[in-house]
Design a protein around this nucleic acid. Structure first.
Lengths: 199, 199
DNA sequence: AAAATCTTGAAATGACCGTTCCAAGATAAG
DNA sequence: CTTATCTTGGAACGGTCATTTCAAGATTTT
């Protein structure tokens, strides 16, 4: 007998993701959300709860829709080092040009803000980090199996290293770092993992 | 003929640094500053100007008092790779234990927030990054001169890489990353730069 | 068509935001 | 000791914050 929603919660949440991603949660007011989504306050609160719950929903959506698909592609890629290289190319491309240029990574941004004192937020950050490391690890194990790694290179430690490097890329790109510079840096990192230059 | 200040502006600014460092500028109100410093609003505004100028002064103080001394020590260290290793050990120590544990780096944090849209803030971030890269570069050139680097390792690109790694350490430590894990990751990075393991 | 129930719009809530203002207090110079 | 000038305390400013409330509107079931 009830009325139905007159909007698409999923599309609204995607709008909210972009808002929080770009501006951060502390600098984004509910009024901003109301304006950007076109919803009004009642529908917003009835659908998502308060601001913190809304942010959490947006952060989880970011992880699921933006991060995990990329991680999955990396982990399942059978090429080894080229897959890792392509992962970073795509990362830098996304961070430095197009619609999301200079937005950084929503999860990386959350690391630096006051929002990470919420245990539920912290859990998303840890999950993101774990999954990133695991995907890199899978790709490096593949690379090792194909003899692409320099002797003495441990896939586990190298995966952690590349994960931290990705956070660095995310941070610096948000402050306007040059894409070419970032690419050079990443290339140097990958070269130091791989077997020494063939002619 | 005038009255003199009844407080030490430098000590007050140091208190403000810690406030903004820990909580971020967006989550810290002027009331928080008033409470923490013991100043009242009039003195605060007369001495430092508004909130944005206060934040900028605090950020610059952080760079000068916290970052640059460490950079200088690194750049002037004549040992090469051990100097770099010690730099990261100290970084992880500061980020994970003691008074500032889990605060991250104030400059790294500023990368991720909305405050970086201010050109003056952006300039501090760029200066920080440049000086960090230069210090690492100096240490790596020293290392190269002493034959500590693996053949084919370019000091410039490696310095950029280690700088991004430092940002990664800063971010993850703020979210509670384990010090031992961070140390392992950094060790792996440095090993990949150095000449292969001697017995 | 009527009843039931959810959604929606818009106003109102009290708390807090950054900032300003001004009278009262304190200090140094004449 | 008076005068000039800055500092200080504290109240007050308009605006915005997240959240709540409630009547009016819309939709499905009976």
């Amino acid at each position: 007998m009830p009325d139905i929603k007159h909007f698409d919660p999923d599309a609204s949440l995607e709008t909210v993701v972009r808002l929080f991603w770009r501006q951060g949660v502390a600098s984004t007011g509910i009024q901003d959300v109301v304006t950007a989504t076109g919803l009004n306050r009642s529908s917003l609160y009835a659908t998502f709860g308060g601001k913190q719950e809304l942010y959490l929903a947006a952060l989880r959506r970011y992880l699921e829709q933006r991060s995990q698909p990329v991680f999955r592609r990396l982990a399942e890629d059978e090429r080894g080092l080229p897959a890792v290289s392509e992962f970073f190319d795509g990362l830098i491309e996304t961070r430095c040009s197009g619609e999301y240029a200079r937005w950084g990574c929503m999860v990386s941004n959350a690391h630096a803000g006051a929002e990470n004192s919420d245990p539920a937020v912290r859990a998303v950050l840890d999950q993101h980090h774990r999954e990133l490391c695991e995907a890199l690890y899978a790709a490096l194990v593949t690379a090792e199996r194909q003899g692409q790694l320099a002797p003495g290179t441990a896939p586990g430690a190298s995966a952690d290293l590349l994960a931290l490097l990705a956070y660095g890329v995310n941070l610096r790109s948000r402050a306007g770092a040059d894409a070419a510079t970032l690419r050079n840096t990443v290339t140097a990192a990958l070269d130091s993992l791989g077997v020494r230059a063939a002619p």
